[in-house]
Design a protein around this nucleic acid. Structure first.
Lengths: 201, 201
DNA sequence: TGCAATTCGCTTTTTATTCGCTACAATCTC
DNA sequence: GAGATTGTAGCGAATAAAAAGCGAATTGCA
């Protein structure tokens, strides 16, 4: 993350002040610590640093600045830092430990391939045209899992899997579509869906 | 991609300066560090290196250069073969070339982090609770992009971004929710959503 | 009410970007 | 092989934008 010389000085001051005193400085104390005469300048610095995600602060609260630990953010791997949870109307809820996520978390050791989805048969499942489904190659599935199935040896579809006696019900996740019933012998499972990947243009 | 001797010197200088100081050098400092007398030359070097994907930089931002770690071109165990397209009721349509997909295809060179989504404010966008959004850290967004925004410095939300004069409209993708209108000054963009990753239990 | 935080308008300093120009080496084309 | 083209490397000057700063007025917790 980009940071200017002055911003680093501000961060350093905040860290060492908080370290030494056990509470964060007031704007007045920051100003005198940095040789500034206007609180507006201090405020601008704090705001900028907050926007860069380097610290947190509560609105209009005294001494509420919290310096966030540096995210080492190493690149080169497909592993992404998982910074927190986000919910409408609420602040990002920071996650305790340094978690991360990657495709490996989905793939594990399994044999996995991807398929690009066309059509809307899984729309209610929030899988839409253009998404990639990550499929583990397997012959079996459990009740309710989303699978890639081959019906009568020719038609491949993406459906939820339900066993009903000697028959199999393949349930689309789109209320406008009807389920498919077929004898177990005619349905060949190609794999089960482990995850979904979507890329915006 | 090829790199020249001079370009390597530039990269080396950038790395060691940033390592030593905790912030990246200004163009002036780069010039004196490399014995150049024109900032235009520095600018050209930086631009070339950025085009080669060896560093990142924000437009017109002070000291915003980020040297990217070398992509060691590992075969990528996280890369999945893309076998074809699947459509409801049709056979899997094989894809011509041996394509593949991986998180790198979404991430590129950008600085990306993940957030776990809570709540249903983007349900109509097919982003639901439990999904991970992949977010590029950026300060700006274009009309209609999905962004992570900080409103009044404290509330983070996931919304579509629209500019309306001096105001900004943040549009949830859920017909039951109302858009948020706020002055541009009160909205701080944390990043834009590049993709979505979902993992089934 | 009092104090700290926030906002407003404005100035200065620092930094990045763009333009026009020269020069050299490697490559492509005829 | 000569000529054209492209990419790297460099200069200085003009412009534009962001970062950093100020003082005063306002807002908002406690």
């Amino acid at each position: 993350m980009a940071i200017t010389r002055r911003q680093k000085e501000v961060i350093d001051f905040l860290s060492s002040f908080t370290q030494k005193n056990g509470y964060s400085p007031s704007y007045e104390e920051i100003a005198s610590g940095l040789g500034l005469s206007s609180l507006a300048t201090v405020h601008k610095h704090i705001t900028n640093l907050q926007n860069k995600g380097l610290l947190q602060r509560a609105h209009n609260r005294s001494r509420s600045i919290d310096v966030l630990p540096v995210r080492s953010g190493k690149k080169g791997s497909d592993r992404l830092p998982l910074l927190g949870r986000i919910a409408a109307g609420k602040p990002v809820e920071a996650i305790e430990s340094a978690e991360s996520i990657s495709l490996s978390d989905i793939i594990g050791n399994r044999e996995v391939f991807a398929l690009e989805v066309r059509g809307d048969s899984m729309r209610d499942e929030h899988i839409v045209s253009g998404d990639y489904v990550l499929v583990e190659r397997t012959r079996t599935a459990r009740e309710g899992e989303i699978i890639v199935a081959l019906i009568d040896g020719s038609d491949a579809t993406l459906k939820r899997f339900y066993r009903e006696g000697s028959m199999i019900r393949l349930q689309p996740s789109n209320t406008e579509m009807s389920p498919i019933y077929a004898p177990a012998a005619n349905v060949s499972i190609q794999g089960k869906v482990l995850g979904v990947l979507r890329k915006y243009a």
